[in-house]
C-alpha cells in the first residue's frame, strides 16, 4: 500500500461524520489496508459516508430523545411564539404615537386574540402549569385557524403559517410530553433567558431594521430575514445547554419552524413564482407538508426506515 493510496483513503474517510470518524477512522483504515482496496471500495466509502450523514441528519441512529425534544419545545415554544405579536404591537405603537389609540379599529389587529392567549400560555409554562397551558395552547391554535373566516380583511401569510405550525407542535408537546418542568431542567434558566432575549431581538429587527433591498433581481425584506435569522440563531443558543446535543439540536430545529416556513415561502413566491404558487396543493405542500415532514424525520418519528435493519 503506497502512501498515496493511504492519503486517498484518509481523504475519503474524512467524508464521514465527525463522531464516526473519531471512533472508527483508524479502525476502518486498518481494515481497508488489509483488504487491498480498489476503486469500488472508494465508491463504497463515499456511499457509507452519505448513509451515515443521512442517519445523523434524520435522527435514525437513536441519539435523539423525542420526549425531551417535546419537553423543551413545550417550555420555549410559547415564549418564541410571542415574536409573532410584533405586527400588532407595531400597529398599537403607531396609533399611540399619533394620538389615535382610542380610535384604532380592531380590524387593524385581527390576530391579537391569538397572541394574547399565547401570552397566557407563556406565563403558565413558566409556572410549570402544563395541563392548563396545553388547554390554552389548543385554544390559541383554534382561534388562529378561525380568524381568516371571521376577519374579512385578514389573509393567511407565510409568517402566520409558520407560527401556526409551531403553535400546533407546541400544543402537542404540552399535551403529550413530560412538560415544561422537564424542559426547564434540560435548558436551565439560561435557556429561558436566551429565548426571551431572542424574542426581544427579533421584535427589534422587525421594527427597526431596513426594509426592502434588492439581491440581484430578487427583492429581499431585510427586516423579516433578520427576524427569522435571530429566531433560528436564538433557538440554537437556547437549546445548547441540553445535555444531549442531538436532542438539543432537534428541539432548536422545531423552534425554528417559522424560519423554515418563511424560507420555503420565499423560494416558492419570489424565486419560483407564478403559476406554481397559485396551486393550493403546491402551497400547502411547501408551507405545511415539507416542514412537518422535516420535523417528523428530524425527530426520528419516521422510523420504518430503521426497522428494515
Amino acid at each position: 500500500m503506497s502512501e498515496t493510496q493511504e492519503r486517498r483513503l484518509r481523504r475519503l474517510l474524512a467524508l464521514y461524520p465527525r463522531d464516526h470518524r473519531e471512533a472508527h477512522g483508524e479502525e476502518m483504515l486498518g481494515v481497508l489496508l488489509d483488504s487491498s482496496p480498489g476503486w469500488r471500495d472508494g465508491l463504497n466509502l463515499v456511499g457509507g459516508a452519505i448513509a451515515l450523514h443521512a442517519r445523523r441528519l434524520l435522527g435514525l441512529d437513536g441519539g435523539v430523545n423525542r420526549r425531551d425534544v417535546l419537553a423543551v419545545v413545550g417550555l420555549l415554544g410559547p415564549l418564541m411564539i410571542l415574536t409573532a405579536a410584533v405586527g400588532d404591537l407595531h400597529e398599537v405603537a403607531w396609533f399611540t404615537k399619533n394620538g389615535g389609540l382610542a380610535d384604532m379599529p380592531l380590524s387593524q389587529v385581527p390576530d391579537a386574540p391569538v397572541w394574547a392567549v399565547w401570552l397566557v400560555v407563556a406565563g403558565l409554562v413558566l409556572f410549570g402549569l402544563r395541563r392548563t397551558a396545553a388547554v390554552f395552547a389548543w385554544l390559541a391554535d383554534i382561534v388562529h385557524l378561525v380568524i381568516p373566516y371571521k376577519a374579512s380583511n385578514w389573509t393567511w401569510s407565510y409568517e402566520s403559517k409558520g407560527w401556526l405550525l409551531l403553535g400546533l407542535v407546541t400544543a402537542i408537546a404540552l399535551t403529550w410530553s413530560a412538560g415544561p418542568a422537564r424542559g426547564r431542567k434540560l435548558v436551565g434558566r439560561r435557556g429561558i433567558v436566551l429565548t426571551l432575549a431572542t424574542v426581544a431581538v427579533a421584535m427589534s429587527c422587525q421594527l427597526f431594521a431596513p426594509r426592502f433591498v434588492m439581491i440581484g433581481r430578487w427583492p429581499l425584506d431585510m427586516s423579516e430575514w433578520l427576524v427569522y435569522l435571530a429566531l433560528a440563531g436564538g433557538a440554537c443558543l437556547a437549546c445548547r445547554s441540553v445535555p444531549n446535543r442531538r436532542t438539543g439540536r432537534r428541539a432548536a430545529f422545531v423552534l425554528a419552524l417559522p424560519a423554515v416556513a418563511f424560507a420555503l415561502e420565499y423560494v416558492e413566491v419570489t424565486i419560483i413564482g407564478p403559476p406554481l404558487y397559485w396551486v393550493p396543493a403546491v402551497e400547502a405542500t411547501v408551507l405545511y407538508g415539507i416542514p412537518v415532514l422535516l420535523v417528523l424525520a428530524g425527530n426520528g418519528v419516521l422510523r420504518p426506515i430503521r426497522r428494515t435493519a
Binding site: 464516526h20 472508527h24 476502518m28 481494515v31 481497508l32 483488504s35 482496496p37 469500488r40 471500495d41 463504497n44 466509502l45 463515499v46 456511499g47 457509507g48 459516508a49 448513509a51 451515515l52 442517519r55 441512529d61 437513536g62 441519539g63 430503521r306 435493519a309
Partner: peptide, 18 residues
C-alpha cells in the same frame, strides 16, 4: 462486503444494541 457497507451496518447494529 466492503468496509463502507460493513461500518454503516455496524453503526446501526450498535445503535440497536444488537
Amino acid at each position: 462486503l466492503r468496509a463502507g457497507t460493513l461500518y454503516t451496518a455496524l453503526d446501526r447494529l450498535v445503535a440497536d444494541d444488537w
